[in-house]
Amino acid sequence: MLDTLTAEEIAARLAGPPAARAAFLRAAAEEGHAEAQAVYAQMLLDGVGVAADPAAAFGWFRRAAAQHHLMALNMVGRCYELGWGVAVDMGRAATCFRLAAERGLAEGMYNYATRLTLGEGVVQDRAAALAWFDRAADMGYAKAINYVGSFAEDGWAGPRDMARAADCYARAAAGGDFRGAFNHARMLHAAGDAKAARDWFARAAAEGTPAFRAKMIDWLRAADGGELRTLADALDR
């Protein structure tokens, strides 16, 4: 079916309502198209256009991964990591992330580096983790850039380097990472640039997850008794 359609016809089908898009992608997935399998799996995972079915999503991610679809391979790892449609297995998660990383996927590099940092599913190795974060950062992956900044700030795999930390946080924030925005704001506040710090704190709150937003507000309240507490109260409304 998919092979008989023009690029314009495929784009039109994908631009349709979610349920129609899901039906189209399922048909293409059943024909064996790896990209369709991966996208349909994500729709099943998120419950977009179809009823949420993590177990079915996991199955489709595995089928796409078997065809060397790197993002699907990374998502198989995420399923093992978070128990989406399968029992949690951090060892298998780490293996999936490592394979995706070795094949050049920035998300796989980031996820494998995170497992190495925490020692989940693998032996903890922060030097190796930093090397993988650096590789993903070199590809412009904002979440990895932020993590490189954390390594530099905290000295996890070498001497502390606050200048490098500040630079990484600024680049991660500019790249759209909400944790990077928070860390960039912290650095700006410490440097005395209160206005810019407020702007980045607000952006981090707007773009972060609800759990992150709540933790950030708690941090602002605990940081001092003045302007940051006032900002926390404003963000908590």
Rank of each mutant, 00 (worst) to 15 (best):
R63P: 02
C96A: 11
M139W: 00
A94R: 08
E30N: 02
A87P: 05
D167C: 06
P17T: 07
T95H: 13
V86G: 00
Q42H: 12
R78Q: 15
L188V: 04
A57W: 00
A57Y: 01
A27Y: 08
A15M: 05
A234K: 07
A191T: 13
A38S: 13
N146C: 15
A152T: 00
F58M: 11
C79V: 09
E30Q: 09
S150Q: 14
R126Q: 10
D233C: 01
V122F: 03
T209H: 07
R92Y: 09
G47N: 07
A204T: 05
R198A: 14
L25Q: 09
R221L: 08
H68E: 15
N146H: 12
D134T: 11
H68F: 11
D193S: 12
A7S: 14
V48G: 02
I145L: 02
A11D: 15
G158W: 00
T114D: 14
L14R: 12
C79T: 06
N74V: 10
M43Q: 14
A129I: 07
R62A: 14
M187W: 13
K143T: 11
A127S: 11
E8G: 06
G47E: 10
A15G: 10
V88D: 12
A214H: 09
T4V: 13
E35N: 10
M1V: 12
A65V: 04
M139C: 06
I145Q: 05
D138E: 14
G121W: 03
T230F: 04
L231Q: 06
R126V: 01
E30G: 01
V50T: 10
A202G: 06
D236I: 04
G104P: 07
E31N: 00
P17N: 04
R186C: 15
Y40R: 09
W156R: 04
R103F: 05
F212A: 04
Q67Y: 08
D236L: 03
A190Y: 09
A152Q: 00
D138V: 01
D134H: 13
E107T: 11
A128E: 12
Y169G: 00
A57P: 02
R179C: 11
A222D: 15
A11E: 15
G225W: 02
F151N: 00
R92F: 09
A181E: 15
M71N: 10
A20G: 06
A94I: 09
K195I: 10
A128C: 01
R135Q: 06
D53T: 10
A12S: 13
R115V: 02
A65E: 04
A19Q: 14
A223E: 14
L188I: 06
F182G: 00
A7I: 07
A232V: 04
K143V: 07
P159N: 10
A206R: 15
G180T: 12
M162V: 12
A64S: 11
P210S: 06
A232R: 05
A29V: 01
P18N: 06
D89S: 04
G180C: 11
V76S: 05
A174L: 13
A93C: 05
L231A: 05
T114C: 12
Q42T: 14
A185P: 03
K195N: 05
V39T: 13
E9C: 13
V76E: 08
W84E: 05
G32S: 05
A23Q: 13
W84F: 12
A55Q: 09
A234N: 07
E8V: 15
